[in-house]
């Protein structure tokens, strides 16, 4: 739809430019004089463009869409994560839950680094064509992001 190469990293400027161009083409307000039947199609099209844009501009949602397009069901097939990782995730969650005020910032930095590492690993896995590993890392990132958002509630 956006005519961009399908990849994990995209040119944000090009994406926005395409989005604006597409929006103009199908903006309901600009096409008011058209037939009523066309109107529904235009609305539908404009909703699709908006959905696609909101997915593509968010790196993690983009990654999810990329994985699912390349291998449908890959996320579902890789839901079982390594128990050692899960045990660590549990410890992190505990740390977040009991973090004293002075530990919030360092912990925030640590978790943000975990999310960055997840992203880097996801990228490497996709580059190597290992979509299963990429899907597992995608799931793993969830735990770090959840811990981070829990921590933000305390900050």
């Amino acid at each position: 739809m956006f005519g961009l190469t399908r990849s994990l990293d995209i040119d944000a400027q090009a994406l926005e430019k395409r989005y604006l161009a597409l929006s103009r083409e199908c903006h309901p307000d600009l096409l008011r004089t058209q037939e009523v039947g066309d109107c529904a199609a235009v609305l539908q099209r404009s909703a699709e463009v908006n959905d696609a844009f909101s997915i593509l501009r968010d790196p993690w949602r983009r990654a999810r869409a990329l994985l699912e397009t390349a291998s449908p069901g890959v996320l579902d097939r890789n839901k079982k994560l390594d128990p050692t990782f899960l045990a660590d995730a549990l410890e992190l969650a505990e740390e977040v839950a009991f973090a004293k005020q002075e530990h919030v910032q360092p912990l925030q930095r640590r978790l943000a680094a975990c999310v960055d590492a997840d992203w880097a690993a996801l990228r490497t896995a996709i580059e190597h064509g290992d979509l299963d590993a990429a899907a597992r890392r995608f799931h793993a990132s969830h735990y770090h992001k959840k811990a981070l958002s829990d921590l933000e509630l305390k900050a």
Partner: peptide
């Protein structure tokens, strides 16, 4: 020891 998780909701159970 059993540690399992549900990635969609970020739950972990040990």
């Amino acid at each position: 020891t059993g540690v399992v998780g549900a990635p969609e909701c970020g739950d972990v159970m040990k």
